[in-house]
Simulated scan of single mutants.
Amino acid sequence: MPSIEINTLKIKSKRVELNLRQVHMAKLINCSTTTYSKKECGKVDFNGKELLIVSQALHIPMEELYIFNNNLTQT
């Protein structure tokens, strides 16, 4: 069954490229730096509103924040 994941590696690499700190991103989405860090490494999910804010802040189109996996197994 296909699954959708958030491309957290793209988020982190773009944030670093733009020389932004996690504390800045955390303030944008109104959470603690610790929580943002967990979201950025995939331990906690971003919600839709947070993804939109992150997308805009990092100049990443929303569709580039998703990874579509086709985990089709044959028996």
Rank of each mutant, 00 (worst) to 15 (best):
I6Y: 03
L52P: 00
Q74G: 09
N69W: 00
K49N: 14
N7Q: 03
K10Y: 01
L18T: 02
K14F: 01
K14P: 01
T8I: 11
T33K: 13
H24I: 06
P61T: 07
N69E: 13
F46N: 02
L65V: 02
L28R: 07
T33A: 09
S3D: 10
I60L: 04
A57R: 01
F68H: 12
P2E: 13
I67V: 15
E40G: 04
V44K: 09
E5R: 09
L51S: 10
I4N: 05
S55N: 11
Y36D: 02
I67D: 04
E17F: 14
H59Q: 15
T73P: 02
N19I: 02
M25H: 04
L28Q: 08
R15E: 07
I53D: 11
C31A: 03
K39S: 06
T35E: 08
E64K: 14
V54Q: 03
I67F: 06
E40Q: 05
N47E: 12
R15N: 06
K14G: 01
K38L: 14
I29Q: 03
G42I: 01
T33E: 13
L18R: 11
L28A: 11
T35A: 12
P61H: 13
F46E: 05
Y36F: 15
I29W: 01
N30A: 08
N7V: 00
H24A: 10
I29M: 07
F46G: 03
K27C: 01
L20Q: 14
G42D: 04
E64V: 03
Q56T: 14
T8S: 12
I6S: 04
E64S: 14
C41E: 06
G48K: 08
F46A: 09
G48N: 14
I11Q: 03
R21S: 14
I4C: 07
T34H: 04
G42T: 02
S55C: 05
E50M: 07
Q74Y: 13
D45S: 15
H59F: 10
